[in-house]
Nucleic acid binder design. Sequence first.
DNA 1: CTGTCCATGGCACTCGGTGTCAAGACGCGC
DNA 2: GCGCGTCTTGACACCGAGTGCCATGGACAG
Lengths: 207, 207
Amino acid sequence: MTTRPDLSLAQRKRQLVADELTRAALDLLARKGFDAVTVDEIVATAGVSKRTFFRYFASKEDVVVQFLADMGADMRRELASRPAGEPPSVALRHTVWVSVDACANNADRTLRVVRLILGTPALLARFLERQAQWRGELAEELAARLGLDPAADLYPRLAAGVSLTAFDTVLQRWSDSEGAEDPAALTDRAFALLAPVLDAPQREQRG
Amino acid sequence: MTTRPDLSLAQRKRQLVADELTRAALDLLARKGFDAVTVDEIVATAGVSKRTFFRYFASKEDVVVQFLADMGADMRRELASRPAGEPPSVALRHTVWVSVDACANNADRTLRVVRLILGTPALLARFLERQAQWRGELAEELAARLGLDPAADLYPRLAAGVSLTAFDTVLQRWSDSEGAEDPAALTDRAFALLAPVLDAPQREQRG
DNA sequence: CTGTCCATGGCACTCGGTGTCAAGACGCGC
DNA sequence: GCGCGTCTTGACACCGAGTGCCATGGACAG
C-alpha cells in the first residue's frame, strides 16, 4: 500500500504540523501582540525549526491571515453556485454570508484573530491585500454571470468592491462590539443599504 | 534673524533631502522592480546614509506610498469644505476628484508609481492600509456632516468605503489602460452608478 | 540490506529596520 | 573672537524576518 488512494499519512502529518504551528502562533500573538512575538518563539513552542516554519507559511503575517484565507475561495464558489436568475444583491449577500457565517461559528477563535488583524497595521495590510485578490475573482465571476465585459464595464469591479466593503464594515463592527452584535443582522442591514447599486448594472455603457 | 518667520533653511534643507531620496528611489524602483532594489542602493544614489533614509521614511514601501499620502488629508479637507446642503454623492464625488485630479496632473510620474504599486504585492498592501485610515477619517467627517452616530449607523463607513472603492477602480482602469482612459470621466461613470446608495442614508435605523 | 525520496534541521547569509553614540553645522549669548 | 545648546547626520553594532544550501534520518520499494 505505498500510494494509498486516500492521500494519507504524509498528508496528515503535514496537516498536523501546520495545525500545531497555527495554534501556537495564534495563542502567543493574541496574548503578547504581533510585534512582541518572534518567529523563534513560535517555533520553539510548536517544537519545529524556524526553517520548517517558513516551509509552511510564507511570512509571519501569513500564519494569521491564512486562518481566513479559505474564505476567498469559498465566496467565489458560493457566487458561482447561486441561481442565474437571482438579483446580484441577493447573490452577493449570500456570497458574503458564507464568510460571515464562518466567522460567527467558533466565534471565540475567530474574534480573537479578527481583533488582532484589525489592531495590527502589518496584519491589516496583508489582509487587505488578500481581499484585493478576492475582489478581482469576484468581479470576474460576476461579469461571467451577467454576461458583461470586465474590461469595458465598471460594474463588476465596483459591485465586488462594494460587497467586500460591506464585509469589512460588518467585521469591524463585530470586532468593536466584542462579538455582541449579530453578524448576520449586520450583513442584512449593510446589504439592504447597498442593494440599489448592486441591482442596477445595466445602466453602464460606453466602455 | 535666528528663527525666521518663514520656517526656513533647516526646513528647506530637509525638504531637499526628502525630494532627492524620493526621486532616486522612484527612479530605481520603477526601472528594476521593487524587490530587486535594496535600500543601500537607493541611499548610495541619493548620497546619504541608510540611517538617514529611515529617518525620513518609515519603511522601504513608504517612499513609494507617501508619494500619494497627502491625498488622504486633501480628501478629508475637501469633504469638510463642501456645502452642507450638497447631496452626499456629489460631495463625495468631488472628494475623490481631488485625488484623481492630483494623479491626472503630472500623469507621467504618477502613472509609473501607480503601476508600480498595483503590480507589487507589498506596495499594494501598504497602500490599502493607508486607504483604510482614510476610510475611517472620511466616515467620521461624513457622520459629522450628516449628524449621524458613527457607532450606530452603518452608513458612514459604508459610504466612505464605497467612495474609495470607486477611487480604486478608477485607478486600476487608468493604470491598465496606460493612461489612455480619462480619469475624470471614469470617476463620473463610477459615481453615476454609486449615487443611489450614497444619497439614501436616512433609511438606516435600529443602531 | 540497499537505494531513493522526502521532510526536517542546522547553518550561513542577505536585507530591512532600530538604538546608540560621536562628530559636525548652525544660531545664540558673551 | 569664544564657548554653548541644539539639531542633523553618519558609522557601528545589533535584532529579526526570510532564503539557499546541504547533511541527516526516517519511510518505503526493490
